[in-house]
Amino acid sequence: MNTVFLLVMLIGTAGWITSTVSLRVKSLQLQADRAERRLALVLDHLGIEEPEPAGMDEVRALIREDRLISAIKSYRRITGAGLAEAKLAVEALAVTVKKD
C-alpha cells in the first residue's frame, strides 16, 4: 500500500513540475517574441536592415537549379533556423530569385 501511495505521489509531483516548467517556458517564449517584435520596429524606424548571412549565394544558386530541398538544408546550416522557418524563408527567397 505504501509503495503504491509513494508511486502515485511521485507521478503527481512529476506532472506538477512538468506543467510548471512548461508554463514558464511558454511565458518566456512570449516575452522573447514581444522583444523581437519591438526590436524589429526599432530597426525599421531607424532604417537599419539586418545583414544577410554569408553563404546565401549558395542558397540562391540551389533555388535557380530548382533544388529547393537542398536550398532549405543549406539555409538551415547557414542560419541555424528550424525546418519550418527555413522552408518559409527559402520559399520567399524563391519568389524574388525567380523574378531576376
Rank of each mutant, 00 (worst) to 15 (best):
D57H: 08
T18R: 13
D44A: 08
T13S: 11
V25G: 03
V90F: 01
R24I: 03
L28M: 14
P53C: 11
R24C: 02
K73F: 13
T13N: 07
R24Q: 10
L30N: 13
A84Y: 03
N2I: 10
I63H: 01
L46E: 11
G82L: 04
P51A: 07
T20H: 14
A84H: 06
G15C: 12
M56G: 00
L30D: 05
L83K: 11
L7E: 08
G47C: 10
A35R: 15
S22G: 08
S74C: 14
L43P: 04
M9Q: 10
Q29D: 07
S70M: 08
S74L: 04
A54E: 02
S74K: 09
V59E: 00
I17Q: 10
S19P: 00
A94V: 02
M9F: 15
V42K: 06
S27T: 12
V59M: 01
I17E: 05
A32P: 07
I17M: 14
P53L: 11
P53S: 08
E36V: 07
A84G: 05
G55N: 03
A71T: 05
R67F: 04
L62M: 08
D57K: 12
G47P: 00
L39F: 05
L6V: 05
I17H: 08
V42I: 05
M56H: 00
D57L: 09
L93N: 07
S27R: 14
I72E: 04
T18I: 12
S70H: 09
